[in-house]
Amino acid sequence: MSDTLQSTGPDDVQLMSPLHAPIKRRSFFLYAGATTLMLAGCSKDNDNPPATNTTVDVGSGDTGVLNYAYALEQLEAAFYAQVLRSAYFTSLDPASAERQILADIALHEQIHADFFKSVLAGNAIRQLTPDFSGIDFSQRLSMGGKLGVLDAARAFEDLGVQAYNGAGRFITDPRNLVLAGKIVSVEARHASLIRDLIRPNSFMGDISAGFTPDTLGEDVIDRSVTSRTARQEKSKLPAQVLAIANTFLAADSKVSANSLVS
């Protein structure tokens, strides 16, 4: 499998286009870098129902940002909860590092979701219903047109990191900024680790043939050495993030962030 489909633009400009594309799961596979899956997935998922159902909007201001984070943490928590019940997870050696890692991350994500729910209290968005039909929970890696557990985990973690990076600008209360920073830091640790589990030393990205420390292997950061964001982790605006996240949410649980605009 190749990671090289990942956009190389400083802010994933290419991923802007799927915002209006009808085949949303296809864009996710592009994001996940699963070449073969993308090809297999696009014919299969062309017939997604039109999004005529209710949408959950996160709101505006700091509450909107916290709800936006809550939506993503709900999604991650639901994903890892299902991982813990999966055939793949239960088949792992109880003493294996990978089993411990997935169990730890599942707890972290549940704690994050709980945290936002408590903080937001009466302002919290409702419980979202995930749709993980694009994930094969019995497989470690992607195959047969579906994402494997680790590939899906990698996509969620990288997306989460980019989401927090792009949402910081909408926060006005410094305390909320620190809270978001505390959490995104751990998401980045997850992302790095999941990548290393899939392939050792791929914590910043693809290390296929031709890799040199200076030019490649940095899918997750801006590879430029001259731009203002040289070697910074990538960042995505809410609309870009939700276009991907919504492909993992049920028709009645699509999320929008229409008031989080700069």
Partner: peptide
């Protein structure tokens, strides 16, 4: 600068995670 700080913090966290791995 706020976003840059976040994005740089994240790279450090990725490094830290890898060194720990």
């Amino acid at each position: 600068l706020l976003e840059a700080t976040l994005r740089l913090q994240i790279v450090k966290a990725r490094h830290a995670s890898h060194v720990r791995t």
